[in-house]
Simulated assay, not measured.
Amino acid sequence: MKTNNKKIRIILVMILWLCSVVGFNQVQADETHNENSFKYKVIFPDNQMEENIGYYHLKMKPDQEQIVQIEMTNPGTKKTAVGISLNGTKTNANGVIEYGDTSIKNDTSVKFDFTDIVSAPKKVELNPGETKTLEIKIKMPKTSFNGVVTGGVQMIQEGQNKVENKGGSMVLNEYAYVVGMVLQESDEKVTPKLKLNSVKAGQSNYKNMVYVNYSNIEAAYVDNMTTEVQITKKGSDAVIYERKQAKMRMAPNSFISFPVGMNGEKMEPGDYTATILVTADNGIKEKWTKDFKISKDEADKFNERDVGLEQNKGINWLFIGLIVVGFFAVVLIVVMIMTISRKNKQKKAKKKGSKRRK
């Protein structure tokens, strides 16, 4: 009797396990935090043009060489290393200027790349309680220029902890400090100038978009920028997609790929027209009208990848197979339980009958 009860318990455990396999997918993550960090202090030179700011704004001369310094301290109890990277400024899709490491490429209007002018060690190692001075070398071009060359010095502690997904994916949390740098030779004012590059279909975070790409081709910042885009079918006045965003900025000699969402709709091939209005400080006002085409191959490719669309990909035979196998497994287990239970009852009945005959 005890053996039969044990079998029943095992079968019930199997049922629960089967349900968990078919119906649930649990993901766990381990997260740890590194308390050991570093501190830094910007040492401003005499040719700093502005006071009480947290970045370098230096008045330079053609072919000038200079070393500026950042003081770095390790207040912790363990040895640490800080990675150093130099980056020219870029403009991201939200109209925010990036001074740190980014995958955004240089605009074709860049004449003097920040990373060709500025150099620094790639790593600084700090013992517990130690203070070191990071020396950043500036070598200005021999050719003079108006406007500014801009970038950032990024400092990121090596060996920061990761959040790892047991299912195979990974999220990495890293904290970095970035000190901006503006290099200027002349006091002559430079007015930004905008140039439309392209309008084309694309995706952002696996969602269908139309990207309006335009550049600031001058060595000056664009401030308080507003971008408004309306998309219509070519030859029609009916607006099918639109977006407006204000309070944006652009870095000198950089481009922006401004995304216009498709409201979760399926991308349709065809001919379209984009009407674009961009305004900003310094009296900037640009209006462009650009025809563009979405091919069938593009539409199919992006629709396949768009996570917001319900895909008709045919019958999922693997899922159906799992359901069928699971169903028959449950039926088999139920039959086994009923058979065991019936046998137990029969044994009890036989015992009672034998006792009566005695």
Results as ranks from 00 to 15, higher is better:
residue 138 I to G: 08
residue 201 A to Y: 01
residue 80 T to G: 09
residue 234 K to W: 00
residue 79 K to S: 14
residue 240 I to P: 06
residue 58 L to N: 05
residue 238 A to E: 14
residue 334 V to L: 15
residue 221 Y to P: 07
residue 98 E to R: 08
residue 117 I to R: 07
residue 242 E to L: 00
residue 64 Q to M: 15
residue 257 S to G: 14
residue 95 G to E: 11
residue 211 Y to P: 00
residue 3 T to A: 08
residue 195 K to G: 03
residue 126 L to Q: 02
residue 158 E to T: 15
residue 162 K to I: 12
residue 52 N to K: 12
residue 258 F to C: 09
residue 333 I to K: 02
residue 80 T to M: 10
residue 223 D to W: 07
residue 181 M to H: 10
residue 83 G to Q: 10
residue 322 L to G: 02
residue 260 V to C: 08
residue 285 K to D: 02
residue 159 G to W: 05
residue 174 E to L: 13
residue 213 N to H: 07
residue 358 K to R: 13
residue 166 K to H: 08
residue 131 T to R: 09
residue 108 T to K: 12
residue 319 F to Y: 10
residue 202 G to S: 12
residue 213 N to R: 11
residue 160 Q to R: 10
residue 348 K to W: 00
residue 264 G to E: 05
residue 264 G to N: 08
residue 6 K to L: 11
residue 292 F to P: 05
residue 134 L to A: 06
residue 197 N to Q: 13
residue 31 E to N: 07
residue 57 H to M: 07
residue 260 V to K: 09
residue 132 K to Q: 12
residue 181 M to K: 07
residue 295 S to E: 11
residue 232 T to P: 01
residue 158 E to A: 12
residue 100 G to Y: 08
residue 250 M to R: 04
residue 251 A to V: 10
residue 216 N to R: 10
residue 294 I to K: 09
residue 307 V to L: 12
residue 316 N to R: 03
residue 85 S to A: 11
residue 294 I to A: 08
residue 269 P to C: 04
residue 328 F to T: 06
residue 304 E to P: 00
residue 345 K to Q: 13
residue 252 P to Y: 04
residue 215 S to D: 12
residue 358 K to F: 04
residue 344 N to K: 12
residue 152 G to N: 03
residue 296 K to R: 09
residue 173 N to K: 13
residue 240 I to D: 04
residue 182 V to W: 09
residue 254 S to P: 02
residue 123 K to W: 00
residue 81 A to N: 10
residue 290 K to W: 03
residue 168 G to F: 05
residue 217 I to F: 03
residue 65 E to T: 14
residue 102 T to H: 03
residue 304 E to T: 07
residue 325 V to Q: 00
residue 275 T to W: 01
residue 10 I to Q: 14
residue 282 N to K: 15
residue 327 F to Y: 11
residue 77 T to C: 00
residue 54 G to N: 12
residue 353 G to Q: 15
residue 58 L to D: 05
residue 201 A to L: 07
residue 219 A to D: 14
residue 228 E to Q: 10
residue 157 Q to Y: 07
residue 240 I to K: 03
residue 135 E to R: 13
residue 65 E to I: 04
residue 275 T to S: 15
residue 342 R to H: 12
residue 173 N to R: 12
residue 353 G to F: 05
residue 311 Q to A: 14
residue 356 R to V: 13
residue 129 G to P: 02
residue 297 D to L: 09
residue 80 T to Q: 11
residue 89 T to L: 03
residue 6 K to E: 14
residue 201 A to Q: 06
residue 305 R to I: 05
residue 333 I to T: 09
residue 68 V to S: 06
residue 45 P to E: 08
residue 52 N to L: 08
residue 27 V to F: 07
residue 184 Q to I: 00
residue 129 G to H: 03
residue 186 S to P: 01
residue 72 M to C: 11
